[in-house]
Amino acid sequence: MPKPQAIDANLIAHLGELARIRVPEDRQEELRAKLQQLVVAFSTLAETDFEAAGDDANAATSMRTMTADELRKDTAETPPSVDQVLANAPQTAAHCFVVARVVEP
């Protein structure tokens, strides 16, 4: 793994691609510096031995579990109308959402 200090323009570009966010040239350095500061500060976690306590990380995300009986019964309900489905869509045609031509990801 590269050192966290190595947060550079390439990494910012990579993260931007993953997150679909384009950072304008004139803000890139400021953003890079901020991210680097945070990442360096938060690296303290990587230096701490949490394993000793034998904790289960999964339990941290969810404080409860679901049994089969708590799952939803498989009953279909009448869905909202097409108009409702498309109510907030920026562009529609033929009862569909419309987006620019898709290029393979």
């Binding site: 793994m1 966290p4 997150a19 976690l45 990587a46 904790d55 941290a60």
Partner: peptide, 21 residues
Amino acid sequence: TFASSYGYSAQFYERARLARR
């Protein structure tokens, strides 16, 4: 995105989960 991305999530996201625990 950084914290959960390949190569970093073990050092950041997963560590954070352990710290939370």
